[in-house]
């Protein structure tokens, strides 16, 4: 994977190029050049292939150039949702973004996602984000005794909330939301997506508890339909549409 390009490039090998990463850094303990907690830009030049993703480039920096660089990643294949970051001023997953798609002629800007407190370099404190998700009670709520076998639903009933089941909780949407940036009071798009997944599930009976929570001052009404969330979602969820469906359910009283 990390084969370096040399003078005798074999036929068929992917072309390689030099790329500059400009990374927003912060060390809570400080370094020899920077005070504790100070935020600064640092540039790294690396050799990359056309098949490399931003995550591969970050690995190269961490493994070969500067081991103190901190970022989260787990599965590295766009499923775990650990490596959402702000790349060239847009929230994306580092593991799903190819360097060649980002104009490698210019430095590639990599920042932590906005609106959440930075802990170190690209790692942010996700707790406020998870707290919002917990508040909408993301678990099946039912009345009466549990059936002996599984709870059935038709394909059409399943289709109703199919889109919002795809969420991987990477926080790309919530940290792209201009309302979330302002005061951190807003639930954020992800919590509403998480609620949508249960509100429109025919097996669930806690819809109105969740809708009542989202009817709050910090709930869906803070949404200004900026569409940043829909644009940012690496899973292609129509987030703004889901939020509008929750608003509609609240306005009409029908689910």
């Amino acid at each position: 994977m990390t084969a370096t390009a040399d003078a005798t490039t074999p036929a068929g090998e992917v072309p390689s190029f030099e790329v500059t990463l400009r990374i927003r850094r912060m060390n809570p303990e400080g370094t020899s050049d920077h005070a504790a907690g100070e935020e600064y830009w640092e540039e790294f030049k690396i050799q990359a292939h056309a098949t490399d993703r931003v995550l591969d480039a970050l690995h190269k920096v961490k493994w070969d150039l500067d081991g103190s660089l901190a970022f989260r990643r787990s599965c590295a294949h766009g499923v775990c949702g650990s490596d959402a970051m702000r790349i060239n001023a847009r929230n994306r997953l580092a593991c799903k973004t190819l360097l060649k798609d980002l104009n490698p002629a210019k430095p590639i800007l990599i920042e932590p996602i906005k609106g959440l407190p930075v802990e170190k370099d690209l790692i942010v404190d996700m707790e406020p984000f998870f707290a919002s998700y917990r508040e909408i009670m993301p678990f099946l709520m039912t009345d009466g005794p549990a059936p002996e076998r599984e709870r059935l639903q038709t394909p059409a009933e399943r289709e109703r909330f199919e889109d919002t089941t795809k969420c991987i909780m990477c926080a790309a949407c919530t940290s792209a939301c201009p309302v979330f940036w302002t005061d951190g009071q807003f639930f954020g798009p992800q919590a509403i997506v998480g609620a949508h997944r249960f509100i429109f599930d025919s097996r669930d009976e806690g819809q109105w508890d969740r809708l009542e929570i989202l009817n709050d001052k910090a709930g869906v009404w803070k949404c200004r339909t900026a569409f940043n969330c829909t644009e940012a979602c690496p899973r292609g969820i129509e987030v703004t549409k889901a939020i509008s469906e929750v608003k509609k359910a609240l306005n009409t009283g029908e689910i």
Binding site: E135, Q185, E212, I213, N215, D216, K217, A218, G219, W221, K222, L250, N251
Partner: peptide, 15 residues
């Protein structure tokens, strides 16, 4: 929830 102790629960919807 302790997010907002408001009693006018429908105010934001009407707004």
């Amino acid at each position: 929830r302790i997010r907002s102790g408001r009693t006018r629960r429908k105010a934001e919807r009407w707004s």
